[in-house]
């Protein structure tokens, strides 16, 4: 994220998107691509009705999944970063598991955990978990041993090191990993919500609108998904900017 996002740049981006959308819909001139002029009024109307509920359901799932992932991956990553023997032992397993698209476990998770919200949340959490685990582990492992010794000599025990060294050291990388995994998390959410639920944007887009040819309403769902991704991205981006630490060079 070298370039800064300003309200103006967001507004300009939005305007350009609408113009391109309008242009394509005029050129294509088929029901599958309705004009934003048709879609937007329906979107704002249904946002406070049915669509809003679907959006809330999706947002709830993705937030629960991300929280679950952070709460488990951060301690696990910090532990691995400190326990080099365990890390070396588990590293091949993590290296193999990390790039596997976790979505393929969807049926397995459904069978094992039942068709509940929990299984959808678990699947998304699984994806985000590995993203965060790896960066937090690496940040913790890369701290200079002399830094740890110095801070221990100031009186810090395990809790003090966690609070004043490991946490601030890994927080920026953790947030970056979280921000980058927003896209994947929502993509998986979309797939997981297409079946076996009655609320959620994935369900709304595929079952309630697409399958019954309500194209303008389908675009409302798509906009909702986009909005969810954008909002999460911005929230994380804002936290990152808040705690933005000085980008230091290792030696100088």
């Amino acid at each position: 994220m070298k370039r800064r996002m300003t309200p103006f740049s967001v507004f300009m981006g939005l305007m350009m998107l609408l113009v391109i959308w309008q242009g394509f819909s005029l050129v294509l001139n088929r029901p599958i691509l309705p004009s934003p002029v048709t879609v937007l009024p329906i979107f704002f109307r249904s946002l406070f009705g049915d669509l809003g509920l679907h959006l809330l359901a999706s947002a709830g799932r993705v937030l629960a999944a991300m929280s679950l992932a952070v709460l488990t991956a951060v301690p696990a990553g910090l532990a691995l970063g400190q326990m080099h023997k365990v890390d070396r032992f588990l590293d091949p397993l993590i290296a193999i598991f990390y790039p596997i698209p976790k979505i393929v476990f969807l049926p397995v998770i459904y069978v094992l955990m039942g068709i509940t919200d929990l299984s959808k949340i678990f699947l998304i959490a699984l994806i985000v978990f590995f993203q965060i685990l790896v960066v937090v582990r690496d940040e913790a492992a890369n701290l200079h041993p002399e830094l740890i010794l110095s801070v221990r000599s100031l009186g810090a025990g395990r809790r003090g090191l966690f609070r004043y060294v490991y946490l601030p050291a890994s927080l920026p990388a953790m947030l970056t990993a979280l921000r980058i995994s927003v896209g994947t998390a929502i993509a998986v959410l979309f797939i997981a919500e297409q079946s076996l639920t009655t609320y959620g944007l994935g369900y709304y887009i595929v079952v309630e609108t697409y399958q019954v040819l309500l194209y303008p309403e389908m675009y409302c769902g798509i906009l909702g998904m986009g909005l969810l991704g954008l909002a999460l991205y911005f929230v994380i981006h804002t936290i990152e900017a808040r705690i933005h630490r000085y980008r230091y060079s290792e030696e100088g």
Partner: peptide
């Protein structure tokens, strides 16, 4: 707590 330690590598928090 009352023993102070200074190492060759300063060991400062970079952030």
């Amino acid at each position: 707590p009352q023993t102070g330690l200074v190492l060759q590598d300063h060991g400062l928090l970079p952030w």
